[in-house]
């Protein structure tokens, strides 16, 4: 197939959607026109929701495919684990289809929600809280590394933590006002340029997409 279908049209599609959605956002004219513009904007967003949902389904297939390939490789140790992943995935999908077919909201489908509440929620919460261990070891290493900026980061971190607790107040009452000062002055000031920079990076990246200069998302160069 020609390069037009392979590269040019997808790039143009991206450029056009970007320009159109920007125009839809900024234009007003009058109330009824704005309502129409919002409708079109919402339509494009809805399209992307449907596309993303389809992508997640393809993702699920891709994961299953990966684990099937591991089983096919006959890596003895991995086979039971891959089987568990595939079986659980398939079971969830069956219950999801069952919910759709019977018109039950998916999260209230008893089996689907059982798996969610008893397998996913505790593991998910455990992963979130595992960070407590990681933060401790990361902080310990930074103290040993003696890299001045990172050390400053850590000292401020300790001050703010002490300022947040009654223990800190008991050691020195000044920790609380110091923490408040850090939060309102340097903390607010330090993040502002980062936010500005990210906005600028976004604008210029958008520009490159419009000008068809940003092509990494297409993968290979043909």
């Amino acid at each position: 197939m020609s390069v037009v279908w392979r590269r040019t049209i997808p790039q143009l599609l991206v450029a056009i959607i970007l320009v159109v959605m920007t125009a839809l956002y900024f234009l007003y004219i009058d109330k009824t026109t704005k309502a129409t513009l919002n409708y079109w904007d919402g339509l494009l967003i809805n399209y992307s929701i449907v596309i993303a949902a389809m992508a997640a389904i393809v993702g699920g297939v891709d994961l299953a495919r990966y684990h099937v390939s591991l089983i096919m490789k006959r890596e003895r140790e991995q086979i039971p684990f891959s089987l568990i992943t595939i079986i659980l995935e398939v079971v969830c999908v069956i219950f999801a289809f069952y919910a759709l077919a019977t018109g039950v909201p998916i999260l209230t489908q008893p089996q689907f929600s059982w798996i969610y509440l008893n397998l996913q929620v505790p593991t998910s919460s455990a992963m979130y809280s595992i960070l407590v261990f990681y933060v401790a070891s990361a902080a310990y290493r930074t103290f040993r590394a003696r890299n001045p900026p990172a050390l400053l980061l850590l000292i401020v971190g300790v001050i703010v933590m002490l300022g947040n607790t009654s223990l800190g107040f008991a050691i020195w009452p000044g920790f609380t006002p110091l923490k408040d000062w850090i939060m309102t002055v340097p903390n607010a000031a330090g993040y502002r340029p980062i936010v500005i920079g990210v906005g600028l990076g976004t604008i210029i990246l958008g520009l490159r997409l419009i000008l068809r200069k940003e092509v990494t998302w297409m993968g290979r160069r043909d």
Binding site: A52, A53, M54, A56, I57, G59, G60, L63, A64, I84, T85, I86, I87, L88, E89, V90, V91, C92, V93, F95, A96, F97, A99, L100, I106, F112, I115, Y116, L119, Q120, T123
Partner: peptide, 12 residues
């Protein structure tokens, strides 16, 4: 496995 199934379910 549970998360992948959940993700497909929510997407459907």
């Amino acid at each position: 496995g549970a998360a992948a199934g959940y993700s497909i379910g929510i997407s459907l």
